[in-house]
């Protein structure tokens, strides 16, 4: 069977304290052409999955710094190798924090400007639709997805930020309902309303909002998050087609 005809397999990494791992697993299960499996943090290989999800939650209780202890898990070496080979890795919320702690994405995530955990609907403006994570969107599209975090205030030095902007690595920004990048629309004080970024090879992506809680229209989270996962599925299938 050619790779393009089997379901796209997502690996969801489970750290102690992950709590959106089952939600990510469930979300992938709502896509007919995809399936998910859990990867234990003490494992040392990725069991041949096509894409990796570092889920939300509080790995190691978020103690010391969010993601600071999780980055040393045995599985993370395999994730680094996978990413170096061009594999698709998405880090959501705590997963994003782990990716920046690991150095797989630039910058850092500071405590929210309001100093409180915030769980709220936000509008995400798609800044770059030409990535494996946003290919089903158009530039300027608004995705309505929930954020829920204590440390989502993205910060990065000016030089790196300028480079990221120039490269198109800023993928999602917080916007108001009309698409304007206002302070009110920014739930955590992130620099330039940044909600999601890619690495410079566009195969590692981190975002604070939770697309896995936004895959079913009947649910409170809506379904706009589907476009993120659908983009990843399309990318994997395209790559498989090219390869075969």
């Amino acid at each position: 069977m050619s790779p393009a005809h089997r379901p796209v397999r997502f690996g969801v990494v489970v750290f102690p304290g992950s709590n959106c791992d089952t939600d990510a697993h469930h979300a992938i299960g709502t896509f007919p052409g995809a399936g998910a499996q859990f990867l234990w943090h003490k494992d040392t290989d990725l069991a041949g999955v096509d894409a990796v999800i570092l889920p939300g939650g509080f790995s190691y209780g978020d103690y010391l710094r969010c993601g600071a202890i999780a980055r040393f898990s045995p599985i993370m070496q395999a994730v680094r190798d996978f990413a170096a080979d061009g594999g698709l890795v998405i880090g959501i919320c705590n997963g994003f924090q782990t990716l920046v702690e690991s150095g797989l994405l630039p910058g850092g995530l500071l405590r929210n400007m309001g100093l409180k955990f915030v769980c709220r609907y936000v509008n995400l403006r798609v800044e770059n639709a030409d990535t494996p994570f946003t290919s089903t969107c158009d530039e300027g599209d608004l995705l309505r997805i929930i954020v829920k975090h204590n440390e989502g205030n993205y910060a990065v030095d000016a030089e790196t930020l300028a480079r990221m902007n120039a490269n198109g690595q800023i993928v999602l920004r917080y916007a108001d309902a009309s698409g304007a990048l206002t302070d009110e629309a920014n739930p955590n004080g992130a620099v330039e309303n940044i909600a999601g970024i890619c690495n410079d090879t566009f195969n590692v992506f981190g975002m604070m909002p939770h697309p896995e809680n936004s895959v079913e229209a009947a649910m409170a989270g809506g379904a706009d998050g589907r476009r993120i996962f659908q983009s990843m599925i399309d990318t994997v299938l395209q790559r498989a087609e090219v390869a075969s």
Partner: peptide
Amino acid sequence: DPQGATVERALPNL
């Protein structure tokens, strides 16, 4: 001190 206890468990792993 849950933070201290968690870090104490993590250090030997490294």
